[in-house]
Computed example of a mutant assay.
Amino acid sequence: MFGIVRPCRHGMCGGLFKEWMAHLCGLCLALRDEHGHAARLVTNYDGLLVSVLTEAQAPASSPHRRAAACALRGFKGADVVEAAEGVRLAAAVSLILAAGKVKDHVEDGDGVYARRLVAAGAGRVATRWSAAGSGTAAALGFDPAPLLVAVEEQTRLERLPDPALLDLTAPTEAAVAAAFGHTAVLAGKPHNREALEEIGRYFGRLAHLLDAVEDLAADRAAGAYNPLAASGTGLADARRHCDDALHGLRLAVAELDLERRHLVHALLVKETAHAVDRTFAQANRASGEARPDSPEAPPRDPRVKPDPGGLLSLLCMSAACCTCGLYRPPWDEDRYKSCGERCDGSGCDACGQCCDGCSGCCECCNCSCDC
């Protein structure tokens, strides 16, 4: 699993969380049915936003079905989004972006990818995923070029001396904008396309910046490339860019013509804001910098063990992906947190924390919620 939108059942109303899980499981099953079991490894939180946006614009375009018991759901059945156009586009986007991410690791020789056999195998898998995603995208009338060239353009920009930060985020912004914009075509609402592309650009910028912030300390220690370090951008300036993107995202979401708005608002407005707060709280704690208006970051849990790296780390990461986060290795801080602490660090005692953006109370407040 990767992505910045990571809601949990205690930070979202029960009905909305079930809808989100329907898209997540639908994406996983679409990848399995169309591209094989190994493709399920690219299931990610942000990719399913494509499916969510398609259904929000035209619910009839995303029929649901009852799925059989699955080990990743604790051997329980579930309501899932059927492999319609929206979830198939989400699968295609996930495959292409995951392929690009793997190719980038191979080219940079990151971690285990520095080993020739691992790099060769990963390169072949990435090529296969890219071809499969491009084939599905073409069948849906989507031009995958912005996604395919994003990694190449990113590599070119990273070789420039003294690049501007927003120039470095531009390829990611263009890729996400293209994917989000095409959901308007699938839903039969072309008038939404401009706003969706704007949402994609802001969301792509946030995803790129938060990834850079999360990796900043590790990249500095390893001497690896990081957009913030390369552009001379500090955490305060990076936070300002993120806050600007969040503001633009809220305004663009408000412009959309949607038949179902609640889940889109919960994910693209509420959860992205939580992601920004969470990421910068951790980064400020790691760097020793303080920000007056940022949430107080808790001290590091002494139970968290250091990441050993190498094959063991890779195997544990694969196990975490295959179990949708049910298994977490000893070096994952979330392993020792309650579900409420993973949401925003405050738990779920206050109804105002749990139900922000909803029309009523939610399950963690011992109330009911139909939103």
Results as ranks from 00 to 15, higher is better:
Thr136Met: 12
Thr136Gln: 14
Thr136Phe: 05
Ala137Gln: 00
Ala137Lys: 03
Ala138Pro: 11
Ala139Thr: 08
Ala139Glu: 14
Ala139Ile: 00
Leu140Ser: 03
Phe142Glu: 05
Phe142Arg: 01
Asp143Lys: 04
Asp143Thr: 05
Asp143Ala: 08
Pro144Asp: 03
Pro146Cys: 06
Pro146Thr: 02
Leu148Lys: 11
Leu148Glu: 13
Leu148Gln: 13
Val149His: 14
Ala150Ser: 12
Glu152Arg: 15
Glu153Ile: 01
Gln154Thr: 15
Thr155Asp: 13
Thr155Tyr: 14
Arg156Cys: 08
Arg156Gly: 08
Arg156His: 12
Arg159Val: 10
Arg159Ala: 15
Leu160Asp: 13
Leu160Glu: 15
Pro161Ala: 12
Pro161Gln: 10
Asp162Ala: 15
Asp162His: 15
Asp162Trp: 12
Asp162Gln: 14
Asp162Phe: 13
Ala164Thr: 11
Leu166His: 12
Leu166Asn: 09
Asp167Asn: 12
Asp167Ala: 15
Leu168Thr: 04
Leu168Gly: 02
Thr172Gln: 12
Glu173Lys: 11
Ala174Leu: 13
Ala174Glu: 14
Ala174His: 14
Ala175His: 05
Ala175Val: 06
Ala175Gln: 04
Ala175Ser: 12
Val176Met: 15
Ala178Lys: 10
Ala178His: 13
Ala179Pro: 07
Gly181Arg: 03
Gly181Trp: 04
His182Ser: 06
His182Ala: 03
Ala184Glu: 00
Ala184His: 00
Ala184Arg: 00
Ala184Leu: 02
Val185Thr: 14
Val185Tyr: 00
Leu186Thr: 06
Leu186Asn: 05
Ala187Tyr: 00
Lys189Glu: 10
Pro190Phe: 01
His191Phe: 02
His191Asn: 04
Asn192Pro: 05
Asn192Tyr: 06
Arg193Tyr: 02
Arg193His: 02
Arg193Leu: 00
Arg193Glu: 12
Glu194Ser: 12
Leu196Arg: 09
Leu196Val: 11
Leu196Ile: 10
Glu197His: 03
Glu198Arg: 15
Glu198Ile: 09
Ile199Val: 15
Ile199His: 08
Ile199Arg: 08
Gly200Cys: 07
Gly200Asn: 09
Tyr202Glu: 14
Tyr202Gln: 14
Tyr202Thr: 10
Phe203Glu: 08
Phe203Gly: 01
Arg205Ala: 09
Arg205Asp: 04
Arg205Tyr: 03
Ala207Met: 06
His208Trp: 09
His208Asn: 08
His208Ala: 09
His208Gln: 08
Leu209Cys: 01
Leu209Gln: 01
Asp211Ser: 11
Asp211Cys: 01
